[in-house]
Computed example of a mutant assay.
Amino acid sequence: MPDRRSKLTGKQKAAILMIALGTDVSAHIMKQFTEQEIEDMTLEISNARKIDSDTKTQIIDEFFQTAVAQDYIAQGGIGYAKQVLEKALGSDEANKVIQRLTSTLQVKPFDFMRKSDPQQILNFIQNEHPQTIALVLSYLEPDQAGAVLSALPVELQVQVARRIAQMDRTSPETIAQVERILEKKVSSSSVTEDYTQTGGITSIVSVLNGVDRTTERNILEKLEQQNPDLAEEIKKRMFVFEDIIILDDRAIQRVIRESENEDLILAMRTASDEVKDLLFKNMSDRMAASFKEELNYMGPVRLHDVEEAQTRIVNTVRKLEDAGELVIARGNGDDVIV
């Protein structure tokens, strides 16, 4: 049977499917659409002329295969879906279905690893080159990546953290090559078609927020020796002023006592209502009333001054944490207050 689907756009296929499903089912589906989607689909359906039965059958079959593949991905990831589809459809057709799906879903590389236990991931990658480990960790969930990073040897932790922080964009060919190497150990995954933003400061900050405090301190200390500017940039983003909301009341009261009143007032100038309310809650009634009055009558201030005040308060938080006088909740839940 000749394949007529290749000449059709995605919208045309959707219109044919809607026609094939009938008015009742199509009406129910269109209730989930946006106004623009309804307009587009109505236009495509109205432009659809005579559709031969072979084309209709092929479109329905493609939809069914895609729906089944999505269900398999939800159950066990792309690797699992590919294995099942290969048994049912053969290798070529299974690859077509997976490629169709992943281009639509924009599935991230190493998706199969995000469904694995951190210890399993560690076993897969611990003997790989630091750059390879950095690439994989930059695609994992922060908690997963933090747990894996914590379990690596100390020197390797620093190498990997630095590489994640300094990583920019990675070509699909490089990602595909790494995936092929790991395919021998775990299920294969797919890659996005365009260059993918990988790693960077934001990525390593997310990872370090998921590691234990000892690992974080060790990595930052070593980075300070190797690349002071990079270490400083990472530390600036590790805990920001708005993160005060994750501290308990006793910790916030300690931070208020250790901070200058002028810094607190300036810092609150751009703070969210949630942060302000939490700080007011942990002040005396007299202090809270005084701060509210100051904020109400405060004239224009430079954003730079506000940010510097917030940085000084964040530094106070980190000093108290280093001294063991307060605990910042970590992503892996290893911090225990005794």
Rank of each mutant, 00 (worst) to 15 (best):
S6E: 15
K7V: 09
K7Q: 13
K13L: 13
A14M: 05
I19P: 09
L21N: 07
L21R: 10
A27K: 12
H28Y: 14
I29W: 02
F33C: 03
T34D: 06
Q36M: 13
E37R: 13
E39C: 12
E39D: 08
A48P: 08
D52Q: 12
K56R: 09
K56T: 06
Q58V: 02
E62S: 03
Q65P: 11
V68W: 04
D71G: 10
I73V: 00
A74C: 05
G79I: 12
G79S: 12
A81Y: 14
L85D: 14
L85S: 14
A88I: 13
K96V: 15
T102Y: 00
S103D: 15
Q106R: 06
K108F: 09
F110C: 14
F110Y: 02
F112S: 01
S116G: 10
D117C: 03
I121S: 03
L122V: 14
L122I: 15
N123T: 11
Q126P: 10
Q126V: 12
H129P: 07
V136L: 01
S138C: 09
E141P: 05
E141F: 03
G146W: 00
A147D: 06
V148S: 15
A151I: 15
P153A: 04
V154L: 00
L156M: 09
V160D: 10
A161C: 12
R162Q: 03
R163V: 03
I164Y: 06
I164D: 04
P172Q: 13
E173H: 11
E173C: 03
I175M: 01
Q177P: 01
V178T: 09
I181G: 07
I181L: 05
V186N: 10
V186T: 14
S189Y: 06
S190Y: 10
E193G: 06
D194C: 13
T196P: 08
S203C: 07
S203F: 05
S203W: 00
S206K: 14
G210I: 11
V211K: 04
T215P: 04
E216W: 05
R217Y: 03
N218E: 15
N218K: 08
E221W: 02
K222V: 00
K222P: 07
K222Y: 02
L223K: 01
Q226S: 09
P228R: 08
D229W: 08
A231W: 06
E232V: 00
E233H: 07
I234R: 02
K236P: 12
R237S: 07
F241E: 00
I245G: 01
L247N: 02
R250C: 06
I252G: 04
I252T: 09
I256T: 10
I256A: 11
D263K: 15
D263P: 14
I265M: 12
L266A: 08
M268N: 09
M268V: 05
R269W: 14
D273Y: 00
E274Y: 08
E274N: 02
D277W: 04
L279V: 01
L279Y: 11
N282S: 06
M283Y: 05
D285S: 02
E294N: 09
L295N: 01
Y297G: 12
M298G: 01
G299P: 07
R302Q: 11
H304L: 02
H304F: 02
E307G: 07
E308V: 01
A309P: 01
Q310M: 00
T311E: 08
N315G: 10
T316R: 12
V317G: 01
E321W: 11
L326D: 04
I328T: 07
A329Q: 05
R330L: 00
D335F: 13
V338Y: 01
V338A: 02
